[in-house]
Amino acid sequence: MTLAQDPHLPTSAVAGDETTISTSGNGQAILYLVGPGVASKREISLGEDIHLPSRELQNAGRYVVSVCSDACRSGSFYVAAAEPASLTFLVHPSRVPVGLSDAISGVALPFDPFHNLVRVPMAITFQLTSGKTAMMSRSVQTQDGVAWFRTSSGKDAGVLHVVAAVDELSARRAVQQVASEPCNLRIKGQRTPKAILVETEPVRDCSGNPVPDGTIVTFTAAEADGKSTVDAPIKQGVARAQIIVTKAAVISAASGVVMGNELRLGAQP
């Protein structure tokens, strides 16, 4: 049994493709293959081509081949990623106030069917659509397997659809565009037999977008010797609360850092 020279390895191999190793010499030997996700050994006949099946070469990376008879001879080769089969698409934030510059960003990474990062440069198209309005469409070349974009949020509240596409592949994400801080929080009150019913006018941001339902508006009735408060959520654009006030009181409202107008009420007759 003699091993005349190092095994002849492929100069290029692609993930998921089978390949062939040739050896010289004669007699029996053992072939070892150690690479990402694989460590195998098998008996081979020297001088014959050795077939490496595709299942052993699915992961991109460096593979070491050793052929041992009386001595061992080694070599290595690289397996590159195959054609892209999926896109990992990271988009942030999930919720963004309207009219904010450079507020939305996305990163796309193409992967082949075996989850190898595809590093060959390719053009990825990013498209942002709000309702039926196309907000942005940009083609970005991947560099080291990554393409990214950054853009401003739109003017209108609602769902923003963000799509990354390459050839027939696409990945889709949703960003919720929400109103900014309330603008001009205004309240009005109405006496009922038991209490004062206070409510806001429709709460909107300065661009006219309705502030999201659920946002807390704190109503405060300050009397001479105490106060009453209600944390009321905005529902269908309006926050409502009933406050029991028998004496003269000043009723005000606040949401986050925004203060509303004041209502001054005399004592209940």
Binding site: S228, V230, Q242
Partner: peptide, 29 residues
């Protein structure tokens, strides 16, 4: 977002034992 509970008539007063106590009424709206 429900229930909404109002906090009425909040006052900080000494109680019968002389301790400072914040008291008031919770109103289930």
């Amino acid at each position: 977002a429900d229930p909404v509970i109002g906090v009425m008539d909040q006052k900080l007063d000494p109680d019968v034992q002389g301790k400072s106590v914040l008291h008031g009424e919770l109103l289930n709206q």
